[in-house]
Nucleic acid binder design. Structure first.
Lengths: 213, 213
DNA sequence: GAATTATTGTACGTCAACGTTTAATAAATC
DNA sequence: GATTTATTAAACGTTGACGTACAATAATTC
């Protein structure tokens, strides 16, 4: 049971303002990085005074961590929704791939991990949290799907985690790097679909069992 | 012919000091990023006065660009040396892959592109220069090797650039991301070799022509 | 209504870093 | 040797941003 935050005395902190600050901070950190983001700018964007920012979050570091934690939670929730519908192996892979690649290559997530990459040296714990919430969860889902294909006899897979990594690598190709470097914009759904289907096709050619040829 | 920089009058700038500054700057930028690197620190590391830094490079931005340009040139030179020895298709791929992956996952290059990723928003031209000097050159080499396999009838490849991207993606897998995020250290040569051979095997299973099965 | 806390705007203290100036010395050309 | 430029150390001006202080007002509990 979580107590409904009693706060016993005085004017309570405004939860809406807190959200506004987090959103403004997220946007600023994402586009400018940690050092080049100023608290004053965040406060202005949030339509809030600087003192209020300091009232809700003690300092810049703490605010940054709050942003990352919040984003990681959102990613985690999004991944959880990637429910594998009942369908063929190929279709399952395509479904997951389209959601996965559309997600990972979205400007929002690219910006997020641009930021994380830059801060990873200084704050490894945050980077780990991100990996656990995103890529590592996806990898587990992939393994589940591939394992089903093995059970049904469609696939021959000597190393499950490696096979999951293979298809993820095929989906990514060079696109992630090029997105990080700003060379490609948001991919259209059609482009994502093409990319994913190609990866699935190559993967299946490599891993299809002799029995199912 | 390049004139031997006449400089006609007065004491010439010290080329050794220039190199020392570039090295110190590279190291500082790589480990701390652009904004968190100070000119004073660079000067101190280089064993040189701050004024000398400003004498050689007008300001911080220019120094940064000089570092990136120099690094891109080194990468370009390194890639040029990836001469494809005369050997089997499989062995050619393995050779290129081991050099490629060893190179791309080295702490030096990971740091470099960590830096580039962070600055890509502000300076897209630098990011493009990096991609052209590194990944895009490698891609061309890969296409050359794969094309040979097609000519010899070993491979069936409907889309050459895509196939090159496939094998690069297979080699990378999640390793690049994990290295960027600081989750894995420098891979041992053995680990690199294993990773590369695995990628080649999967690639060949997917792309081997019917005639050569 | 009294007490308490939140929020705001403004102002301030502090610090770090960019980039410049100055005076002195070193290294090059003529 | 005269001139010119590079280098150094130290000091400086300036700017930008973090974080705090203050006084006034708003929201909430008792």
């Amino acid at each position: 049971m979580i107590q409904d935050s009693p706060h016993s005395l005085g004017r309570p902190k405004d939860a809406v303002k807190r959200e506004l600050i987090l959103s403004a901070a997220e946007n600023a950190f994402f586009t400018r990085g940690f050092s080049d983001t100023t608290i004053e700018r965040i406060a202005a964007d949030a339509g809030v005074s600087k003192v209020t920012v300091y009232g809700h979050f003690g300092d810049k570091e703490t605010l940054f961590e709050a942003v990352v934690t919040r984003e990681a939670a959102q990613i985690e929730a999004a991944v959880d929704q990637l429910v594998t519908a009942q369908s063929s192996l190929e279709q399952s892979l395509i479904n997951l791939g389209e959601i996965f690649i559309g997600f990972v290559l979205s400007p929002r997530v690219i910006n997020f991990d641009r930021l994380l990459v830059a801060e990873a040296v200084k704050n490894p714990a945050l980077a780990k949290r991100f990996m656990a919430a995103g890529p590592h969860q996806i990898a587990r889902l992939l393994e589940t799907i591939i394992a089903k294909g093995v059970e049904s006899g469609e696939l021959t897979v000597p190393d499950l985690p490696k096979a999951a990594e293979d298809i993820a690598g095929l989906w990514f190709g060079m696109a992630k790097l090029e997105a990080q470097m700003g060379l490609i914009e948001q991919l259209t759904p059609a482009a994502i679909s093409t990319r994913v289907r190609h990866g699935v096709a190559v993967f299946l050619r490599a891993y299809k069992s002799d029995a199912s040829r």
